[in-house]
Amino acid sequence: MENTDNTLPIAIAHLSKSFGGRKVLDGIDLTIPRGQTLSLLGRSGTGKSVLLRLLIGLDKPDSGSIRIDGEEITSLGMDRLNRIRQKLGFLFQQAALYDSLTLGENVEFPLKRQTTLSPAERTEKVRALLASVGLERDVDKLPSEISGGMKKRAGLARALALDPAIVFFDEPTAGLDPITAAEIGQLITDLSKQRGMTSVVATHDMHSVRCFSDRAVLLDKGRVLIDGSFDDLKNSSDPFVSEFLTAAV
């Protein structure tokens, strides 16, 4: 049992979290194998962002366990948690770019802190990362000078800066035009194929779910309602699921 857990990048068991007496997550069980791209679905306010924040240790759950590469993170101290975070990437829902730094410096920040790359190597890496999200010409712009979708893409470049093995994306394609959204979806898929990157993507974008993810998990009332492929979702007889899909398409 212990052994199988160790091979899994993410194993969540009986995870619960309440805010002010309201149970947002109520016993989530989920295991995610390496290289999988999992889409996290659910109505606004069901706790997708809350779940992602728990997964990277920004908040502590009320109960339950989260194992990242076999290591229980819910009870870790700052130092150990930081070591684990080096192999994780996180895209915040509102991008959370440092607004006193340029886009280039934003992407460079984790590189500067966590790697021994020389300044020249860092500059090259930053350029490549920003180019992969189509922002190669905006290296020197400040976050206040760019659009919401561009912020999202810069945040994505920063999340991928350390070549993380596991990445959590909070609505990577929200607010993007369909073409850019498809490009971002393709980028995530390519990375999982090339490097075996495992990703959890909170999203409302059904097109991305269908085209780019291996598995869809629908949250409702703090629990996992559906866990399967996009087709499982489509063929479900649950009235909430059909309503969710009909409304989305």
Binding site: I56, N82, R85, F92, A96, Y98, P110, R113
Partner: peptide, 15 residues
Amino acid sequence: MKVTEQIDAMAVSGV
């Protein structure tokens, strides 16, 4: 920085 999650982003970067 706190309300726009920049402080969280920093923590995620291991700082």
